[in-house]
Every structure is written in structure tokens, then in C-alpha cells.
């Protein structure tokens, strides 16, 4: 995935079954952000892989004061990349059926 300067990782083991999963996001490289960034730490949240949209979560983070509005796209993309990877891994580990 592209280096956005924003890191998103699983905050729990993925059992491959539940749709809602805990993710953790933090800024690795503040220079990649457009807006002024106040280092607040790692942000943990739950994300529903089936129902939710990464960009909506990014918007909620902006509204909660974690990021400047100009960085909503980069945060959304960072979450989307990680979510895509989780889904891709899940697809590859689906048990074979008759």
C-alpha cells in the first residue's frame, strides 16, 4: 500500500468471522499531512467490514478533532487500504467447501 504517513493496524486478532473488528491508527509521518497535526497518540476504534465506509470514519475523526479537514482523504485512504488487505486475506483463507 502507498505510504500515507498514517499507519492503520489490527488492534485484535482477526478470527476471519466477525464483521466488526478493532483497528488502531496513528501518525508515523506528520510531514505527509496537510493540516496542522496535534499528536494525540494512537486512535483505536471498531470498524464494520461489511457495512461501514472508511471515509466516513475519517470524517468522524476530523469532527472529533483528531485531524484537520484537509487530511480527511489521506486518513480515509489509509483506513481503506488496511480494510482492503484484511478482506483480501480473509478471501484467501476461506475454507474450501464441497
Amino acid at each position: 500500500a502507498e505510504d500515507t504517513g498514517v499507519r492503520v493496524e489490527l488492534a485484535e486478532d482477526d478470527d476471519g468471522k466477525k464483521s466488526s473488528i478493532a483497528l488502531k491508527l496513528w501518525v508515523e509521518d506528520p510531514k505527509k499531512l496537510k493540516g496542522k497535526y496535534k499528536d494525540s497518540g494512537a486512535i483505536e476504534f471498531t470498524f464494520d467490514l461489511e457495512k461501514e465506509v472508511p471515509e466516513v470514519v475519517a470524517q468522524e475523526m476530523v469532527e472529533s478533532g483528531f485531524f484537520h479537514e484537509s487530511d480527511v482523504k489521506i486518513v480515509g485512504k489509509s483506513i481503506r487500504d488496511r480494510v482492503s488487505l484484511i478482506k483480501w486475506k480473509r478471501e484467501r483463507t476461506v475454507p474450501a467447501r464441497d
Binding site: W26, E28, D29, G41, A42, I43, E44, M61, G65
Partner: peptide
């Protein structure tokens, strides 16, 4: 370590905790 919670008006809960130094990229 200290953690804080921020609840967005849409109901999502954000739990904020310090990033372990080992997880930060060396500049």
C-alpha cells in the same frame, strides 16, 4: 499510560492511547 475516550455524535467510540516508541518511525 493514560488513555482517553472520545465519543463522536454518531456514536463511534475512539480510544486514544500513547503510541509505543517502538512503533514510531525513526526520523
Amino acid at each position: 499510560s493514560s488513555t482517553t475516550q472520545v465519543v463522536h455524535s454518531a456514536g463511534r467510540r475512539f480510544i486514544v492511547s500513547p503510541v509505543p516508541e517502538s512503533r514510531l518511525r525513526e526520523q
